[in-house]
Lab assay of single mutants.
Amino acid sequence: SKGEELFTGVVPILVELDGDVNGHKFSVSGEGEGDATYGKLTLKFICTTGKLPVPWPTLVTTLSYGVQCFSRYPDHMKQHDFFKSAMPEGYVQERTIFFKDDGNYKTRAEVKFEGDTLVNRIELKGIDFKEDGNILGHKLEYNYNSHNVYIMADKQKNGIKVNFKIRHNIEDGSVQLADHYQQNTPIGDGPVLLPDNHYLSTQSALSKDPNEKRDHMVLLEFVTAAGITHGMDELYK
């Protein structure tokens, strides 16, 4: 796709999030870079409003799984890469995230190029959380598991539907599940690639910047598309 050509090198990323969870309002600002050749993201996020009212790991899918245009699609799968094909005009990404036995996040993001920078601007609203639950009670460990993110075409809306389940580790050794339902639709009216069913395999590492006084998260992530085999004719070339 034409959009794919915008991702040949390292691309700067800007992320802006405004959130409200159970009436606790907050903002997060992030910057870093993405390299789609390797499916690599390096980002640093800062809570610009003081202390973040929710655990950082609960925002990873909104912040970095928010820029799935940096996923590495192998050559034989490039015609299934909706995310890059929607660029530079970008796409709207909407999600509902259900935390098992707790509340939910609803998010709406616009992901697009502004100049040479890929920008992810998000509004997040969280409701029905227990004040002493795993999320508002800050009981999650500061780490992140690997996940597969399942993608299918949504021809009606000229976009994709995505769903997956995140496993958050809790300090007591148990797990907090979070079910994600995602819809992506193009902002522009140019042609986009509608994929066959496949998935993104994601690995994320969270860390801290020892010199950063503000509440923050440093993230390194690798994302690769998989799940579609080479056609038989490919094998015999």
Rank of each mutant, 00 (worst) to 15 (best):
Ile187Thr: 10
Asp128Ala: 08
Asp116Glu: 11
Glu16Ala: 07
Lys44Arg: 08
Tyr91Asn: 01
Lys84Thr: 01
Met217Leu: 08
Trp56Arg: 00
Asn211Asp: 10
Gly115Asp: 08
Ser174Asn: 06
Phe129Val: 04
Lys106Met: 08
Phe83Leu: 10
Lys213Arg: 13
Gln182Arg: 00
Asp18Val: 14
Ile13Val: 04
Glu110Val: 14
Pro210Ala: 09
Ile170Leu: 15
Tyr38His: 14
Asp179His: 09
Tyr236Cys: 13
Gly9Trp: 02
His147Asn: 12
Met87Arg: 01
Gln93His: 02
Asp196Asn: 12
Asn148Ile: 06
Asp172His: 08
Lys155Arg: 13
Tyr73Cys: 01
Val15Ile: 12
Gly159Cys: 09
Met87Leu: 13
Leu177Pro: 07
Val223Leu: 15
Ser174Arg: 13
Gly190Ser: 08
Phe26Leu: 01
Asn169Ile: 12
Met77Thr: 05
Gly23Cys: 01
Thr42Ile: 13
Arg214Leu: 06
Gly103Ser: 04
Ile135Val: 12
Lys155Gln: 09
Phe98Leu: 12
Ser29Pro: 00
Leu136Gln: 04
Lys2Met: 11
Met217Thr: 03
Ser71Cys: 13
Glu94Gln: 13
Asn134Asp: 10
Ile127Phe: 14
His76Leu: 09
Lys106Ala: 10
Ile160Ser: 02
His80Asp: 06
Val92Phe: 15
Met232Val: 14
Asn104Tyr: 15
Pro195Leu: 04
Pro210His: 05
Tyr105Cys: 02
Met87Ala: 06
Leu194Gln: 08
Thr224Ala: 11
Glu234Lys: 07
Ser201Asn: 13
Lys2Glu: 08
Phe83Tyr: 14
Lys40Asn: 08
His216Asn: 04
Glu131Ala: 11
Asn211Ile: 06
Gln156Arg: 11
Asn145His: 12
Gly231Ser: 09
Asp18Gly: 08
Asn120Ser: 13
Ile228Thr: 11
Leu193Gln: 11
His230Asn: 13
Lys25Arg: 09
Gly227Arg: 14
Ile170Thr: 14
Glu110Lys: 08
Asn211Ser: 12
Gly133Cys: 14
Phe7His: 12
Thr229Ala: 10
Asp209Asn: 03
His138Pro: 02
Pro53Thr: 02
Phe98Cys: 13
Ile46Val: 14
Asn163Asp: 12
Leu52Gln: 00
Asp128Gly: 15
Arg72His: 09
Lys51Gly: 03
Phe129Ser: 00
Tyr144Asn: 07
Asp233Tyr: 15
Ala36Asp: 03
Ser64Ala: 02
Asp35Val: 04
Val92Gly: 03
Met232Ala: 13
Phe222Leu: 09
Phe7Leu: 08
Ser64Thr: 04
Met152Leu: 10
Ile160Thr: 07
Thr229Pro: 12
Ile228Asp: 10
Lys112Met: 04
Thr107Ala: 06
Phe7Ser: 03
Glu110Ala: 07
Pro12Arg: 05
Ser204Ala: 09
Leu200Arg: 00
Ser146Arg: 12
Lys139Arg: 13
Val223Ala: 04
Asp132Tyr: 05
His24Leu: 09
His147Leu: 03
Tyr142Asn: 05
Leu206Pro: 03
Gly173Ser: 05
Ile187Ser: 06
Thr185Ala: 11
Asp189Ala: 06
Pro191Ser: 10
Gly32Asp: 00
Gly39Asp: 00
Lys51Gln: 03
Val28Ala: 01
Ile127Leu: 15
Thr37Pro: 10
Asp20Asn: 11
Thr117Ala: 06
Lys100Arg: 10
Phe45Cys: 09
Ile122Thr: 03
Asp20Val: 10
Phe45Ile: 03
Met77Leu: 09
